[in-house]
Write a protein that binds this DNA or RNA. Structure first.
Lengths: 185, 185
DNA sequence: CTAGATGCAAAAGTTTTGCAAAGCC
DNA sequence: GGCTTTGCAAAACTTTTGCATCTAG
């Protein structure tokens, strides 16, 4: 019953080298299965995405493109969109919409642990947490709904981080993990 | 511990007359607090929305506008957007994005029970369910994250309804509640 | 009369698509 | 060489905004 939710103490992308290697294997397999050609642009995009070339763990297409262009300025929007679609299809990326008008993508993969999100409604800080209990709950609901087969879930908690509650000495769990600086819409 | 998830057996909008009355009270209060003027268009939009003039309980702006125009063809998009914003602000509407590219709105209100969603990834059927247990879980997570104050949550389960699993005699929990006919994008 | 509301059209933002040129196999 | 992929620009969508006009209070 020890439900232990955790925020990872380290910044942004926390993926071990082994995990990245495994993710790349999955990508290569996907490429093979779908007879995709290996192009410099696509490889770069996938690489940047999986390695979290951005300090941000929930990248928008813009974020991703910006990172990619730092290494190859000629890559176009369309290519990023098309590649991300492949990554989603391959199960290596998952999309999220936290209500700020932008679709964000994060790395997903069979060996990465599933997590959910907590979003500060004021400062737009995005925190991740794990809650094993929820899988149980998910199944219990599914079974009640007559044969529905649940494949995945998304749980988002919205609220206020200590800082935004006006707590003077409040210790924001991750002082500098702020994801969306000020919103861009 | 009796976690009882339920799908409402009735179709689409299931709100009693009393509930609608109460919702309208809330709207009137909001109007007063914010010194909004009473205009025919806005009243119509609010009315259509709260009464679920659409057979759909998760309406998009387009859905809503279409219903509204059936009663007054001159109402414009902007007015609907602006009115929905008020409804959100008043806490009478809640927005959801189920990943089909459209923002959907549903009626919310203090006296209506909170519910979550189960979405069939193939046929886009949207089912609602209640799961009391999740509130507990939400609090337990929040307390672990150092002073975060959780205001609300969104839980979405994605999977396959019996019909789409290829189950021959599968009884889809709500044979005709299909929300999104085929996607419109 | 006056501040707020409406409708239209234009603008802004995001995602998709058509197509010629370029690249992989 | 043939089929895929790319990049650009245009198109398609959704949502927001500016502004002249209208209207509730």
């Amino acid at each position: 019953m020890a439900t232990h939710a955790t925020t990872s103490p380290k910044h942004a992308e926390v993926r071990t080298a082994e995990q990245v290697t495994e993710l790349k294997h999955q990508w290569i397999e996907y490429q093979r299965r779908n007879a995709l050609k290996t192009t410099a642009q696509r490889e770069l995009i996938v690489d940047v995405f999986l390695n979290g070339g951005t300090s941000d763990s929930h990248v928008s297409i813009d974020d991703l493109l910006a990172s990619v262009r730092r290494r190859n300025p000629k890559v176009g929007y369309a290519t990023v969109y098309r590649t991300v679609k492949h990554l989603l299809d391959a199960g290596l990326a998952a999309s999220r919409q936290f209500g700020d008008g932008q679709t964000r993508y994060e790395v997903a993969g069979s060996e990465l642990r599933h997590h959910d999100h907590l979003i500060c409604q004021k400062c737009r800080l995005i925190l991740e947490f794990e809650e094993p209990e929820i899988e149980r709950l998910q199944d219990s609901v599914a079974s009640r709904l007559g044969g529905f087969k649940v494949m995945q879930h998304k749980l988002e908690l919205y609220g206020l981080c200590p800082k935004e509650q006006g707590v003077v000495g409040g210790s924001c769990p991750s002082e500098d993990l702020r994801q969306v600086e000020s919103g861009r819409r």
